[in-house]
């Protein structure tokens, strides 16, 4: 081998930056979370677990955990399943798949903040086309379909749609209402994320050898569903695991839509962790509690990724 010392110069910048920018802050956040330090203070005192105690007992932070969990639990599965369905649909098309692919991928590329504002107007109670579309549909086919009147147990006088029509077009104020805000934000999250998952699944689908499907057919897997169960789904295992992890980590970090659209409200129903860190630590200068939230947040992410690695080793490897 060669005795050059070049490698030191090659790896030193990366190592120094990794330590300063990624590893040291972990310890800093951990340290601050046990103090009452606020940015600008000259001194601080150790307060032990007080910050964590607050986090799990004060209503605000309990709501924060709820909002974050709701968002993640709704957005991840739906955007993954939608991505998979879209990918399989596109994969089976004879023509036009590229156009749909471009359209579905647009939200991934577009600046999320701008799109959040666009959604705000789209869903605006008086200016938005969604509510005007609903209002114009009172008594018509739209009411029948979207009011679920086609389900046998829905009374066509009592459905949400019929009630709104009867009460002077009282359709939801999507982002301003306590019972709809979190779901609306979730919807935007799904809208933004599923195209990304779709593209990853498309790549996964093309890597499945065609002979496997033919073997399945010869083995007697007749229906599309049987073939999906026998070949497609297991072969997509690694892709699914990856898609789920990356989507989970991304949805945990939701911030843009919350900050611009709801500011955590109404009554903290959309108060997700990243927004909480921002609001507490930056806007209210409560650095120590922000650090505690940071630690919990990082903890979640690390547990998730280790879990993923573990599952990869155990299950999906072949």
């Amino acid at each position: 081998m060669h005795n050059s010392k070049a490698h030191i110069w090659f790896i030193a910048p990366a190592i120094i930056l990794m330590i300063i920018i990624l590893i040291f802050p972990l310890f800093l956040a951990g340290g601050i979370s046990f103090t009452d330090y606020n940015l600008g203070n000259k001194t601080f005192e150790w307060v032990g677990l007080e910050n964590y105690d607050k986090m799990f007992n004060r209503k605000t932070y309990v709501k924060m955990i709820w909002a974050t969990a709701t968002y993640v639990i709704v957005v991840v599965p739906i955007s993954v399943v939608l991505g998979l369905c879209a990918a399989m649909l596109l994969n089976s098309l004879r023509f036009g798949a590229d156009i749909y692919k471009t359209i579905f991928f647009l939200p991934v590329m577009a600046t999320l903040l701008a799109m959040a504002i666009a959604w705000e107007f789209t869903l605006h109670p008086t200016l938005g086309i969604v509510n005007s579309f609903l209002a114009n549909g009172c008594g018509g086919v739209r009411e029948f379909i979207l009011g679920f009147h086609w389900l046998p147990w829905v009374d066509s006088q009592e459905s949400w749609y019929a009630v709104a029509c009867a009460n002077n077009m009282d359709f939801p104020y999507w982002l301003k209402q306590k019972n709809t805000a979190i779901w609306t934000v979730c919807f935007i999250g799904i809208w933004q994320a599923f195209g990304f998952n779709m593209v990853l699944y498309l790549a996964g689908l093309t890597s499945i050898p065609r002979e496997l499907y033919q073997a399945a057919e010869m083995d007697g897997a007749k229906s599309t569903w049987e073939q999906f169960k026998l070949v497609t789904w297991p072969m997509l295992g690694p892709t699914t695991l990856f898609v789920v992890t990356i989507t989970t980590i991304r949805t945990f970090q939701v911030f843009d839509t919350i900050e611009i659209l709801t500011k955590g409200g109404p009554s903290k129903t959309t108060y997700v962790m990243m927004y909480a860190i921002f609001e507490k630590a930056i806007q209210q200068n409560l650095t120590s509690i922000g650090a505690a939230i940071t630690v919990v947040f990082i903890g979640f992410i690390l547990v998730l990724t280790f879990f993923q690695r573990y599952v990869i080793e155990k299950r999906v490897h072949y």
């Binding site: 002979e211 496997l212 033919q214 297991p234 072969m235």
Partner: peptide, 9 residues
Amino acid sequence: FQSYALYPH
């Protein structure tokens, strides 16, 4: 099949 097409999982 030429590639055997066994189910790898």
